[in-house]
Design a protein around this nucleic acid. Structure first.
Length: 627
RNA sequence: GCGCCCUUAGCUCAGUUGGAUAGAGCAACAGCCUUCUAAGCUGUAGGUCGGUGGUUCGAAUCCACCAGGGCGCGCCA
């Protein structure tokens, strides 16, 4: 048996609280602009701590946490304060804990404090303090949980950034949703967020795209070439054979007639057509990409073009700057150990000293034909973002780019002199399944799932919610049938159902009490003393953790936590609802007891508000009723 | 061969950045619809947190090594 299991033997009890005692204004004042009662209690703990141990170092104070208890038997909140300051204070945790207990238990709003385990202090709050969360929620509405953690600091979130070479498919989907939700989350946490899309419209792939569109153009004007004859003339062969380029070819034919082709619908010299075709095709593809994103509810603020970046000379400027700093050299890389490519031969290249900034090897900036590598352009792009005023960059990438993270971080350090940081959120593969069976993704077999088809089949809300039900760096199965199932194990349904039930109760109450009595501002004023059942207080405690959930998720860059919070919140609400099944006095609407009914309606309305607040971060539309 | 990510209940996954007795859903087992809120509900059982060491008052969490899975590995983006 471990010694610290003796938390059932409190060292000291707080005195009982007289029912008419006013609650400490520091614990309930909504004008404090801090919706987080945990943060407010933490403030009380820190104040008490300073009295007990003067001159504690800031870094020790920073480690003090006030958290919800895992076990209700431990009270409402717990703090590790005594444990984390024991060493700098040169006092045993138990002694500090005892002193904290004495001071905290004396505060109004705290009904008991007791030391437990190795030095935790468990706090029990006056139920009025908990209940006071409800009017705060009702007055602040969806804005409940907004925080000032970010302090208005600019953050640039870049996501999707797919090549404009075809329709968006489900591989792009997860990054789109994760990036968008992360941006919303950071905005809610008080950052000034810019949502950005980097158009990879330079390089060999868009040249291949231009050739593919040119083929559709030749077809539109009536070429006598076969597809294979044409393909033989294309450097690298014809790619992007999907039908989606047919309209592009037709539009080109309508605009330019036969002027982009040689007589007989034959291939003209690339100089004649390639710029025109490429520009028109990219423009059309980006229109489609933006339409796909719009259908998914994603709307980025800035679209940056790689080609425009190169044309502006920024890339050369940035490389020059790195050269001046001595971070570029001509050198020869070692072959990868163990697995040397067959055609390996030592080659002198222009290299960036990534190893000076934590990367494993130095990275090439120029291809053998003298043009820049993608990495070189990407360095310039990130430098450009920094120049535009973003010291904090977040990129959302597919996991297949994982090997690219350390070099990009190194580059950001180098170009900013260490002033800017880059966080990369990697998204693992999504496997689409239907009823447990894998849906193969293959362009050739015609079972290629486009983003648009996915949205048409299950709806944007289900797509978005489901994409956020896993940590982004964990692989995910997306079951087309399961996301539409109306059962508890489908979080989309379970959360939406909770909101619909809240709204349903409020609609029924309207008939009983009239619409005016149910306005959120009015419910914010009702007496709440009757809310005392375990399930009611548990729900209130959950609502109270929303602000700290937002803050923690934002700092961790983990939007999936919002989905899990909502699932738990929905569980608490359904639990309460179900209590009314066995015991009708626990139902929300009690016609002969209007005061209790109003208090319960305030709880229901507040629950609906917080669900909406969470869904707003996820970009999911709350439903009013289940049909 | 090297680097990064991952490994938690039979299954799918959380785990509040190092806290107390590791949680939820599904599946399993036992109950619960004449009626009110059953597109279900209540309860039970289920664990060597991949393994071994280490740091710490305290480890699923941090470090080292090992095993298994995924991704990547000099001019593709």
């Amino acid at each position: 048996m471990r010694l610290y299991r003796r938390h059932d033997r409190p060292l000291r009890h707080g005195r009982a609280s007289p029912p008419d005692r006013p609650v400490d204004s520091r614990l309930r004042d909504p004008n404090q602009m801090n919706d987080d009662i945990f943060a407010r209690v933490r403030g009380l703990v820190l104040t008490a701590l300073r009295e007990i141990v003067p001159d504690l170092p800031e870094d020790a104070m920073a480690k003090v946490e006030v958290t919800p208890t895992r076990d209700p038997a431990h009270g409402d909140m717990a703090t590790n304060a005594a444990l984390v300051v024991a060493k700098p204070a040169r006092q045993p945790p138990a002694r500090i804990a005892a002193a904290l207990v004495e001071r905290l238990a004396a505060l109004p709003g705290i009904t008991s404090a007791e030391a437990a385990g190795p030095g935790f202090v468990n706090l029990r709050l006056d139920p009025d303090v908990l209940r006071a969360v409800l009017p705060v929620v009702l007055r602040r509405g969806i804005g409940f949980g907004d925080s000032r953690t970010g302090g208005g600091a600019p953050v640039n979130v870049e996501y999707v950034s797919a090549n404009p070479t075809g329709p968006m498919h489900i591989g792009h989907c997860r990054g789109a949703v994760v990036g968008d939700a992360l941006a919303n989350l950071l905005a809610k946490a008080g950052f000034a967020v810019s949502k950005e899309y980097y158009i990879n419209d330079a390089g060999a792939q868009v040249t291949a795209l231009a050739w593919a569109a040119y083929w559709r153009y030749l077809q539109a004007i009536g070429t006598d070439l076969s597809e294979e004859e044409f393909s033989d003339e294309v450097p690298g062969g014809l790619q992007y054979r999907g039908e989606y380029l047919i309209p592009v070819g037709q539009t080109l034919a309508a605009s330019f007639g036969g002027s982009l082709a040689a007589p007989g619908g034959r291939i003209a010299a690339p100089d004649v057509w390639i710029d025109t075709v490429r520009d028109a095709t990219i423009e059309e593809m980006m229109l489609q990409v933006r339409e796909d994103l719009r259908l998914l509810g994603v709307d980025q603020d800035v679209f940056s073009s790689e080609r425009a970046l190169v044309a502006s000379g920024v890339v050369d400027d940035v490389i020059d700057r790195l050269a001046v700093d001595g971070l570029i050299y001509e050198g020869v890389l070692e072959p990868p150990k163990g697995k040397t490519p067959d055609d390996w031969e030592p080659r002198e290249q222009t290299l960036f000293r990534a190893t000076q900034f934590g990367d494993d090897v130095d990275r090439p900036l120029r291809k053998s034909d003298g043009s820049n590598t993608y990495f070189a352009n990407d360095i310039a792009y990130h430098a450009d973002k920094i120049t535009r005023g973003f010291p904090t960059l977040i990129d959302v990438w597919g996991a297949d780019h994982g090997g690219y993270v350390s070099r990009m971080k190194a580059a950001v350090k180098a170009v900013s002199g260490g002033a800017a940081t880059l966080d990369v959120v990697l998204c693992q593969i999504v496997h689409i399944v239907r009823g447990g069976q894998p849906v193969r993704m293959s362009k050739r077999a015609g079972t290629y799932v486009t983003l648009r088809e996915l949205i048409e089949e299950v709806g944007a809300d289900a797509v978005r919610f489901t994409m956020l039900t896993r940590k982004s760096d964990a692989q995910m199965e997306f079951d087309l049938d399961a996301v539409l199932a109306q059962t508890r194990d489908n979080p989309v349904f379970y959360v939406q159902y909770a909101h619909a039930r809240c709204r349903s109760v409020l609609r029924a109450a309207t008939e009983m009490l009239g619409e005016a009595a149910l306005a959120e501002a009015v419910l914010a004023e009702v007496a709440l003393d009757s809310l005392a059942a375990d399930a009611e207080l548990a729900l209130i405690r959950r609502l109270a953790t929303w602000p700290r959930t937002v803050e923690a998720a934002a700092l961790a860059r983990e939007p999936h936590r919002i989905a899990f919070f909502l699932y738990d919140l929905a569980g608490d609400f359904h639990m309460l609802w179900n209590r009314g099944r066995d015991d009708s006095t626990l139902r929300f609407l009690q016609p002969d007891r209007p005061a209790e009914t109003l208090a319960r309606l305030a709880l229901v309305a507040a629950t609906a508000v917080v669900i909406r607040s969470g869904l707003a971060v996820m970009g999911v539309t709350p439903v009013e009723e289940m049909r």
